Simulated assay, not measured.
Amino acid sequence: MSRTPQNIPRTQQAARLSLRLAGPLTGVGLALILPGTAYADPGGAVYLAANSLPVVIANLQAWIMGILAAIATLFLVLAGVYWATAGGDPSQVEKAKLALRNALIGYGLAVLAPILLQVIQGIVGS
């Protein structure tokens, strides 16, 4: 039995057609998605925006508080997982308590970050 287009099942025909169209369609898609050529602005001076020290400290405060809160939340989730999967195992319960304590320390540091940065700002003198 020869394999003429009439003898090939429809699913195979559809697969072959999709393979034939995949390359050109991918090329067209990439051409539409990728940006065109960018040219530099030939004129005008470039000014660097340098923030004042209070602005830098405020930005630092926001970053520190966010990072500490994220790490504390991670430890809180780990404590919950350890506690839920302990199954009465004392070492797992102790591990959960340690993770919970670390989470509380992290949240405490996140709350105290503005005060610590105020102290640093006072020492630096701005």
Rank of each mutant, 00 (worst) to 15 (best):
G125R: 03
L76D: 05
I120Q: 11
A69K: 00
N102L: 13
P90Q: 08
A62W: 08
S18N: 08
G122T: 05
L78D: 08
V119W: 00
S91W: 09
G27A: 07
N51G: 06
T85F: 12
L30I: 09
R101I: 12
G80D: 03
N59E: 06
P42K: 05
L48R: 13
R101D: 09
A14W: 15
G43P: 05
S91M: 12
V124T: 06
A58S: 15
L48C: 07
N59G: 09
F75M: 08
V55W: 10
V124P: 09
G125V: 00
A45S: 14
M1D: 05
I64H: 11
G80W: 03
L30Q: 04
G122S: 05
Q121A: 15
A79L: 03
A110R: 02
T85M: 09
L116V: 11
V81F: 08
Y47I: 13
T4N: 13
V77M: 06
G122I: 05
R3T: 12
L32K: 10
P54I: 04
A22D: 07
P5F: 00
A14D: 08
A99I: 00
I105A: 13
A40L: 08
L74K: 08
V55E: 15
L112Q: 02
P42S: 03
G29N: 07
A15L: 07
L116E: 09
L60A: 10
L17I: 03
T26H: 07
Q118A: 10
V119T: 02
A58E: 15
R3V: 12
G29Y: 13
K95C: 04
G36P: 14
A14V: 15
P90N: 05
A38G: 07
I8M: 01
R16V: 04
I115K: 07
L30W: 12
A84C: 08
S126R: 12
P24F: 01
L68F: 11
P35A: 04
A62I: 09
D41I: 05
G23I: 07
A79D: 01
D41A: 05
Q92S: 11
I64S: 13
A70R: 11
G27C: 06
V119L: 01
G108S: 01
I105G: 03
N7I: 02
Q121T: 13
A62K: 13
P9H: 04
A70M: 14
V93L: 15
L116W: 15
V119I: 11
T26I: 14
I8D: 00
N102G: 09
